[in-house]
Design a protein around this nucleic acid. Structure first.
Lengths: 368, 368
DNA sequence: TTGTAAGCGTTATCAT
DNA sequence: ATGATAACGCTTACAA
């Protein structure tokens, strides 16, 4: 009934060799006579041996350093979320000998990214987790990492040119398609949708283009139900300037009924609208469950937030690397996380499952 | 720079006692002189000791048996999903000495539940995971479990009378509210919504009532935008009978524009409609990403599926129990999982993250 | 080519 | 009340 787990010792006895020999065939290191090897392999197969990861980890007694390179959480609260996931993963894996060294760069400053990436390389980590929107800089950074031949995974922004590294995050194109669907459900035909990009054009990179394409493709595939207006604005933090900009847009374009904000800054848009006294009868679709967005979602000022689970991105990113370090599984795979449609009525449930205090995952190691 | 992790040996040396003594104060077992105890505790605090779970697990070398009691996956494919999560969790925790013994009952048969629960008790497990809609039977079962004093968690159906046991699953009431929101977005006012319950009335229990209440409360709070019609039907598997039943309903009630199916059987409804040649210009909201529902969602025959992540329910359920067994953390907490709004445009992303092959979580132990 | 034994950090059983 | 020591299953250096 209660079958005991097969240990190395057991197959050593079965094959009538020593534990050392068994170990040698398992890791095929060292010399072992062909017939002996066959005998051991037969025993492994017939007894159904699988190694005890716990004991292996303890015996290995190795320390691994994973470096992270992400934007300063202070720069944009969005970046606090992956940070939470990274911390969770750290606590979950520290007993496996995993250390995490974090490097932060200024979100809008490529130079800062380059500086930090150099510091990171000097620290000689065993693996790297990266999140950046700087395409060229990321590719240059990858060249350096390639030289020292350690695994690298990206989160949040998919740098498609880097096909040798893993990616965990959202499918940007599909999130645009999904936004299209949400407008389709909510609005009548023959109205206009404003695509609004807030932030530096530097970061107005591929993944933002993908979101726009997704929305426009959806619209094309649905008989061009909507008119699409494309606009971007850098100085969104200056509510006055932003407000004037918006009233200009809305006075020129009087048929706008939907607004698609392509990143986590929807709350700036709503606040600027409010400041200018422009009434908000718009259907607004934004991204990410940062606090200011959540408040406006509850109030009904924002209609939909698309969640890309940044906490999980950070968490899974670290776990993927741990997986590679501990079990040398080499997957440079792309993992697209679900795109959650968040409305006032299901918001709280998403927030709860994101809070670090409630998700007390201790150990979460990928394998086999 | 590279700080070594503090071990029992380290604090033993610091406090100038033996490892045995340190162990005694950590687990406050056995006698230890007050001053010695204070000295050790001081050392633990100042050096910042935390136990190495890996080594502890190995040394403990204990075997735990977790029993599960869920409906037969063959009875209703929905129940394959928690089963997947349970299997994942098993693979993740087997190295921690966790065994899983599964008991299955016939979904619509309380007697079968009772029989299996008796077998389960005889097997003398160390913890139990349960999913059932049979209220009375579940409560009786709990009385037996209470006697042998082992942890019990429920998934999927919240038996509120059992306030001493943990629950992981959906907030049924809130899922009804969310359905209300979805109709609100999709439909004009002054149309009717049909609430359709398919299945035995036995299982037409509290959590189904909660869903209905949620929808109706939403409607009340929005000026009774819709009319609500309540209907249930047992023999939904008989497409002919079901079809006649539906044509009867729809010929009497000609203003129905929305249909809320309260469980995972939305596909039966669509098929019966189709069979009778009733045109589907309805807004349909159902539950759960089982294959037949997914196909209809893609085709546009179902508009929304609310996902309660049954895979994760099974997975988290096991992990919660493992947590209690390994770290004696006693939380009979209620964990409500997010309610995902699934449409054709984000369906694939949810399916991918549910597939057992992609989620290769090895070890996921809760702690601290 | 093979076997032996020490060690990973913790627990638990002995003596003292 | 305290200390020494053998386990747990695996790795690895060293001996044979």
């Amino acid at each position: 009934m209660k079958k005991k787990r097969i240990r190395i010792k057991d197959i050593a006895e079965a094959a009538d060799v020593s534990r050392g020999t068994v170990d040698r065939v398992i890791h095929n290191r060292g010399k072992v006579a062909p017939q002996v090897k066959a005998k051991v392999e037969a025993a492994i197969l017939s007894l159904g041996y699988s190694p005890n990861i716990i004991a292996r980890t303890l015996a290995n007694n190795k320390e691994y350093h994973i470096a992270t390179l992400i934007p300063l959480p202070e720069d944009d609260i969005f970046w606090k979320l992956p940070q939470i996931g990274i911390q969770q993963a750290f606590e979950a894996t520290r007993d496996f000998g995993i250390h995490i060294d974090q490097f932060y760069f200024k979100m809008d400053d490529p130079v800062s990214f380059v500086n930090e990436s150099e510091k990171l390389v000097e620290a000689r980590p065993d693996a790297v987790l990266m999140a950046t929107q700087f395409y060229r800089e990321a590719i240059n950074f990858y060249r350096q990492i390639e030289k020292i031949d350690i695994p690298l995974v990206g989160i949040n922004t998919h740098i498609k040119e880097l096909d040798k590294v893993g990616y965990i995050g959202q499918n940007s194109y599909q999130s645009g398609v999904l936004a299209g669907k949400l407008f389709d459900i909510s609005l009548h035909e023959n109205v206009d949708i404003l695509i609004l990009h807030l932030g530096s054009s530097v970061s107005n990179a591929m993944h933002i283009m993908d979101k726009k394409r997704g929305l426009m493709d959806y619209n094309n595939n649905h008989n061009n139900k909507f008119g699409i207006i494309n606009v971007e604005f850098r100085e969104y933090r200056d509510l006055d300037k932003f407000g004037y900009f918006l009233s200009d847009v809305f006075s020129r374009e009087t048929n706008i009924k939907g607004v698609f904000i392509t990143n986590s800054r929807a709350h700036y848009f709503i606040n600027a609208l409010d400041r200018m006294g422009i009434s908000n009868d718009l259907c607004t679709v934004g991204f990410d469950l940062i606090e200011k967005n959540c408040i406006l979602l509850r109030k009904g000022e924002i209609d939909f937030l698309i969640n890309q689970d940044p906490v999980r991105q950070g968490n899974l990113g670290i776990h993927t690397l741990v997986d590679q370090l501990l079990f040398n599984r080499s997957d440079a795979t792309i993992t697209y996380l679900p795109l959650d449609i968040v409305v006032a009525e299901n918001l709280d449930l998403y927030l709860l499952s994101n809070t670090p205090s409630t998700s007390e995952i201790k150990t979460q190691i990928m394998a086999k």
